[in-house]
Every structure is written in structure tokens, then in C-alpha cells.
Amino acid sequence: MEEPVIETRGLRKAYGGRPVLDGVDLTVRRGQVLALLGPNGAGKTTTVRILSTLVAPDGGTARVAGFDVRTEAARVRAALSLTGQYAAVDELLTGEENVRLAARLAHVPRRQVRERAAEMLALFDLTDAARRTVRTYSGGMRRRLDLAVSLLSRPQVLVLDEPTTGLDPRSRAALWDVVRSVVAAGGTVLLTTQYLEEADALADRVAVIDRGVVVADGTAAELKAAVGSAHVELALADGRTERLATDGTVGDVRRVLGEVERRGLDVVHWQVRTPTLDDAFLALTGHDAGTADRTPALATTAQEPR
């Protein structure tokens, strides 16, 4: 079997004595999209920073495209592009200058720099804004430019750290399209997200990380299946909500509704609900996604550094 493009084993990292990663194992194969899903402070950004050689792990191993992040950092850097949570582009340069700088640093042959830069700007719908300084760009435009810079070097691995946080729905949809094109071209993507919907839409596999440990790893469907079957949700006139289990087939839903009539329940609204990743997350971690840093009982959870 082909060697995984990303592989971590027992990855550990502590900040100020507090463990942020406590033995993270991840495997991503060529052409896959892995979503690393977890609340703030779960260890997503630290994992990403170790994979992109910005931070050395305290223990365990991490390999990208077969290269060790500690001993072969230069090769890892050549294989991977990171798009962080904040658009890392130069405010004082124009969009075009940013992309050309990236092309030169990616060692694109000198005569192709202009052409390649223009291509990437066009791909991200920035041709009209190419000659303007980035200072005048909107948040969505900056993020697109950031991605243009990341993808210009045609990396083996694209790492996206919460790529759609703070993006409007249109920019988010555009970004999802880009991820799909990258994968269609044979690239491998690791993205971190707090949005279950995003993991569901994009990822072949979802690794749920909570307090520095991967608590579940599988396809979105597998994770949902782990939570149990569908149910009929009833909003009653007295304000209560009742859930009745069903396997979701027409016959079984009819049976459940028959029971509702027999019991004479006063139903205002009803729907058949299949488990969402939200439900899966709750079932796996015992708390909602995104609440780890707000729940007093979990106040000791280490915060991720920026």
C-alpha cells in the first residue's frame, strides 16, 4: 500500500506544562480530504503548526510526503502549503506583487512567473483587483489571495487552518470549490474546522479531536451511524418536544405517526431527523462543538496559541 501523505504517531506538545496534544495519531492518504474537527483549544492549530514545521513536537513523529518534520523540515516545507487563520499576505503590496513574490519564492522559472501569477489571480477572481494594494481588499479577497499564494507552488499537501472562519457564504462556497478542484487534480488536503457542516461537505474522513486526543476517526457517515438511527421529532402544542425512534423507512414512519394519533398527541410541527455531525460530536465528546472554552468545568483546557 502506498505510504500515507500525512502520518502522525503519538504526537505530543505541551505549553507551559499543560498538554495541548496528548498523543495524536493521524493518517491521510493521497487524494484525501481529512477534516480535523474540534472546538477551540482542542489542539487543531498546534497539530497544523507541527505539520508545517513551525513548531517542533515534544514527542511522537510526524511525516509529510514521507519526510520527517523534525529532521527533513526543508523537504516538508517544499511539499506543503499552509493557509493559516489569518490571511498572510503583504498589505502594502498589490495582489499581483504578492503572487509574484510567492512565485519567485516557489522557484517558478523566471520566464513563467508573470504567466503563473496571472493564472492564479484569474482562478481566484482577482484579476480586476490585481493592481490594487491589499490594504484595499475585503476579508474574502484577502483569503482568496492567500489561497492563490498557497496553491501557486502546486503543493503535495494543502493545509487549511479554519479556512472559512469569518467568511461570507459566497466566499465559503467558492473556497469549498477550490478544495474540490485541488483534490480532483490529485492533491491532498488537511483542513481544520469548527463547522460540522463543512467537514460533512468536504471531507472524505473526519478526525474528531478533543483536548489533544483524536476521539473518533472515520467517514462522516460512519460517525453519524455511531450515534444511532433516525427519529421522528414532534413539537407539541404545550411546548414539549418528543422524539420517537424510527429506521426512517416509509412504513416505519407511518407506524410511528399511527402511534402519535392513537396517543392523541397535539402536534404543531413534526419532522424526520437523521443524526447530524453535531449529534455525533455531542455523543463522542460529551459536550457541544465550540463550547469547550466556555464551559466552566473545562476551564482548565489549554488554550491554543495563535
Binding site: R104, H107, L151, R154, Q156, S181, G186
Partner: peptide, 23 residues
């Protein structure tokens, strides 16, 4: 949207002194 080549390129050899100077 898909005319641009996004195919991953093979990992290039480690940068040499000339690359460092150009960077």
C-alpha cells in the same frame, strides 16, 4: 475555473545556496 494546473508537483530537491541567494 479548472484551466489552471493544480496537479501537485514532485517535491523539489532541498534548496541550494543559489536558491537561498535568490530567495
Amino acid at each position: 475555473m479548472s484551466t489552471v494546473d493544480l496537479t501537485p508537483r514532485p517535491v523539489p530537491p532541498p534548496p541550494g545556496p543559489l536558491d537561498a541567494a535568490r530567495d
